[in-house]
Nucleic acid binder design. Structure first.
Length: 579
RNA sequence: CGGGACGUGGCCUAGUUUGGUUAGGGCACUUGACUGGGGGUCAAGAGGUCGCCGGUUCGAAUCCGGCCGUCCCGACCA
């Protein structure tokens, strides 16, 4: 492959685009890899297309190595498939919907579970046909409320999605492990720094689930990590270790007059000053009322959640904990309908009598003593003991996570970082096969309900993530396997240098090296060097003022190191780097 | 959907507060000359419905009204 800058469809920009915030966005636009067409929608220019193709190729090779079989569904889909699983309505605003000329409803596929399940049902019917794993590399469409960060999070994006179909849970587990290993190999090859995090399965349903997160300050997902044991989890999936049970004996419950103490801090100050309790916010039990709505219905159940008073409810964690239910704020009008709940002074002591479900943070174990509401305006209760004065209906992971919280595996302090989700694997189970009535006929002549796994990699996002992780102040720094070319040959100065650069380029091309050569006449060396650094090929070969002495410069883009080499050896040296 | 900002050649922008000749600059582009190792210099050019519609006015990029669009911060996702 030989690309000549003199004829390459490329224009680099000196200024950052005004709408770009994150480095990958700025650099991919400045280096002429992508151009914005509409919010969250980008075109790929020749160099960008090569990068995208390289990422795609790596993913495809690893999927094929695993035994996956590639298919391709349409992006434009009729409504019926998504009607059956309820997602035509459930997917909500994020679904691109359109009508054909007859007025029939269509959508642009945001994901393809339904199509895969249906295809397998149509083609396979015997237990002998399983297991099978199918995948596709497809453009997906999601009308995000707010696309941002260039191709990191667009409304149109390329995704590899695969689905495993197994006869039993053990098979599903095997398919899941295979994908896990394949993803590890894939991201290693792509040169992406990543963490495997326990995850919640979110809107897709299903059970066991892990996310591959690329650490980045600009990431949308918070995750925790433990230095000592390697535990890592998405913030939504972090579990809180329960402390040991408290002592059996406690002083009796005591109701206190606490006027004007609507917040935790005013309460703590008041009881310490007037009653000498010596408590902190962490000794109080904050009770938050929410409504949990079942999707697709108007019914909402009232739920009270108890968390230590020094912690806020993390709404994202709450949502994950109650999924597929949807939590809603309990408003003033709701309090009027439930006179037993005294706003600001709710205590768990009465919830059983009110018939309201009470879930607590895992730290609230039997034998722990709390300061909490007394269910009367202006009054709180102290020495309220879990297991004696109230009995929760269970625990819930809804309290915020903080750096320094105990690791659920080893107890060491956790750190919190941000990351970009680049892959997600999970064991879907039978949610879609139930809807599709996807069965195989077993050896005994009875149907076996197929169990599915679902696995995604953000392909175009991976390009942005690589750019995000591999750049410096000068420009992009592509890993060799992903770079548009192996070597960027710069011919500075006059015709001699450019002529030599071109002939070296042809020799290298003949050796199977992918070459980008800057043969633009009349462009100053400074411009060519800047462009070479911005574009980010891993190796830069300069044919310049050393030509008269028969030497060239061989530069490593990532380290910035360079050496002078005889031009006669240049082809061998570069070819050796590539093999 | 809530909050904030903005809309001027391909890109980045000045001008708008206080209406007044031909809307100015930088980058990029074309031509010529010089230069030739860090986005070089000089000269000459091409390129604009100032987001759209309406209003006020002798006169609107500028003031008023409406609409559209975009970006950023929050609630949602490969």
């Amino acid at each position: 492959m030989l690309l000549r800058m003199s004829s390459l469809f490329l224009r680099t920009l000196r200024d950052d685009p005004v709408d770009a915030e994150v480095p990958s966005h700025k650099l991919l636009v400045r280096a002429g890899y992508v151009r914005r067409v509409a919010p969250g929608i980008y075109s790929w220019l020749p160099l960008g297309k090569k990068v995208l193709d390289n990422v795609t190729r790596v993913i495809r090779e690893e999927m094929d190595r695993m035994g996956g079989q590639e298919v391709l569904f349409p992006a434009l889909l009729p409504r019926d498939y998504y009607e059956a699983t309820g997602r035509w309505t459930e997917y909500g605003e994020a679904l691109f919907r359109l009508k054909d000329r007859k007025g029939a409803d269509y959508l642009l596929g945001p994901t393809h579970e339904e199509m895969f399940a249906d295809m397998v049902r149509g083609e396979l019917s015997s237990y002998k046909d399983f297991p099978v794993t199918l995948y596709q590399i497809q453009t997906k469409y999601r009308d995000e409320a707010r696309p941002r960060a260039g191709i990191l999070r667009g409304r149109e994006f390329v995704m590899k999605d695969s689905y495993s179909f197994d006869l039993d849970d053990e098979g599903l587990k095997r398919s899941y492990e295979q994908h896990r290993e394949t993803y590890i190999r894939t991201f290693e090859r792509l040169g992406i720094d990543y963490r495997i995090c326990f995850a919640t399965s979110g809107a897709m349903g299903g059970s066991a689930s892990e996310e591959f997160l690329a650490p980045a300050e600009t990431g949308a997902d918070a995750f925790v990590a433990c230095r000592s044991c390697g535990y890592a989890a998405n913030a939504e999936a972090v579990t809180t270790p329960a402390p040991p049970a408290g002592p059996a004996e406690h002083p009796p419950l005591r109701v206190l007059d606490t006027p004007d103490t609507p917040t935790i801090q005013t309460l703590v100050d008041f009881v310490n000053e007037h009653y000498g309790l010596g408590v902190t916010a962490a000794d109080t039990l904050k009770n938050v009322v929410v409504k949990i709505r079942t999707p697709g219905s108007d019914k909402a159940e009232v739920l009270v959640i108890g968390v230590p008073g020094d912690r806020e409810i993390d709404f994202k964690r709450l949502e994950a904990a109650v999924a597929p239910g949807e939590p809603e704020i309990f408003e003033a009008a709701d309090f009027e309908r439930h006179p037993g709940l005294v706003r600001g002074y709710i205590g768990p002591q009465v919830l059983k009598d009110l018939g309201i479900t009470y879930l607590v943070d895992p730290r609230v174990v039997d034998g722990t003593s709390w300061v909490t509401g007394a269910n009367e305006p202006g009054r709180h209760a102290a020495n309220v003991v879990a297991g004696r004065d109230f009995t929760p209906d269970g625990t819930i992971e809804a309290a915020e996570i903080r750096a320094g919280d105990a690791c659920p595996q080893c107890g060491s302090p956790l750190s919190i970082d941000r990351g970009i989700e680049i892959g997600h694997i999970f064991q879907l189970g039978r949610k879609y096969s139930d809807v599709a009535e996807l069965d195989a006929l077993g050896p005994d002549g009875k149907p076996i309900r197929i169990t599915m796994g679902s696995y995604g990699i953000g392909v175009s996002r991976a390009v942005a993530v690589i750019a995000e992780q591999r750049h410096d102040e000068l420009g992009l720094v592509w890993p060799r396997e992903i770079a548009p070319a192996d070597v960027h040959i710069v011919g500075t100065g006059k015709d001699d240098q450019i002529g030599v650069a071109l002939s070296l380029a042809e020799e290298l091309t003949a050796r199977g090296v992918r070459v980008l050569v800057d043969d633009r006449p009349g462009v100053s060396p400074g411009v060519k060097f800047k462009d070479a650094e911005l574009l980010g090929m891993p190796t830069i070969l300069v044919i310049g003022r050393g030509l008269a002495q028969g030497v060239a410069e061989l530069r490593d883009r990532a380290s910035g190191e360079w050496e002078e080499i005889p031009i006669a050896e240049a082809v061998d040296r570069v070819a050796a780097l590539v093999s």
